[in-house]
């Protein structure tokens, strides 16, 4: 376990030195710029739009970090041969895979946490710009703890994406891994559509196939409760629980697969 922690910290250090956290500056600039512009463009919907934008941006920045670092985690070690001296140390290959994963998870956690703080600060400022009258009709307060549930699920989704990127990178090139991961993310967002495929297609075989695929392919749409928290609609805790369990099992599956491939791999 300690070994996994050391490897994870090294990944975190790498991402910091590779200036991944600069994305936070981009995020803050986007948010502040948008909140200024939106005030000029639209009639009194600043808080809702900033919430929409902030949550979408957290998910998107995280997605890019998860994919582009995730695909390089293992591949870079192999390609640059730094793995040679690493694997001669008293560590097991699965510890390397899990440590790399934990390291990127830590990077994402720090990133998402900082972006969340920035979002809350902008919202707290916007809150002061409105009358009590205007605030009374908002479905949720500007500074709303409930939003953390959506951010939590976004983080979990990012962890699943990271697991995909890592899994692919154990056997394919970075370009292919990135393409596969992004494709799966898009398919995963479409997943609920697969379920009502029979409404669209004639052939029952195709409908069955689509339904079957919807069970196997990741359902990223399930992690999206942005609308619910922005409008303070009810999100049952059982939903949060099952979705979290779904994410956890999916991550475990992918990491097991990654380890299985990585365990027997030759580093020529």
């Amino acid at each position: 376990m300690a070994v996994i922690g050391h490897i994870a910290l090294n990944v975190f250090k790498e991402s910091v030195r590779d200036r991944v956290l600069y994305s936070l500056v981009a995020f803050a600039t986007l948010l502040i710029g948008a909140s200024y512009l939106i005030g000029q463009l639209t009639a009194g919907q600043d808080v809702k739009i900033i919430k929409d934008l902030g949550l979408a941006a957290i998910a998107t920045f995280g997605l890019f970090i998860a994919v582009f670092i995730g695909i390089g985690l293992v591949w870079k070690e192999v390609e640059r041969r730094s793995i040679y001296s690493l694997l001669a140390k008293p560590i097991r290959r699965h510890e390397l895979v899990l440590g790399k994963y934990a390291g990127l998870a830590l990077t994402l956690l720090v990133n998402v946490a900082m972006m969340t703080i920035a979002l809350y600060l902008v919202l707290a400022y916007l809150n002061t710009q409105f009358s009590d009258n205007a605030r009374a009709v908002w479905p949720a307060p500007a500074v709303d703890v409930g939003m953390l549930r959506a951010i939590g699920l976004i983080f979990l989704e990012l962890l699943v994406v990271t697991a995909f990127a890592l899994f692919f990178s154990t056997f394919s090139s970075p370009f292919l891994s990135a393409a596969l991961t992004f494709s799966l993310w898009i398919i995963g967002e479409f997943n609920p559509e697969l379920r009502n495929f029979e409404a669209v297609v004639e052939s029952p075989a195709a409908a069955y196939l689509a339904r079957g695929l919807s069970y196997v392919l990741p359902n990223f749409a399930a992690f999206d409760i942005k609308t619910q928290v922005v409008y303070a609609l009810p999100v049952p805790s059982s939903y949060l629980l099952t979705t979290s369990a779904y994410g956890a099992v999916y991550i475990a599956l992918l990491l097991t697969g990654a380890v299985a491939i990585f365990e027997r791999r030759d580093f020529k």
């Binding site: 463009l41 919907q45 934008l53 979408a56 999206d224 609308t227």
Partner: peptide, 21 residues
Amino acid sequence: KRLALSYDALLADIYWIRAVQ
């Protein structure tokens, strides 16, 4: 709505801004 992926709310905001404009 299908093409919006998880960005439907954000896209709605953009269409709303376009409508106002």
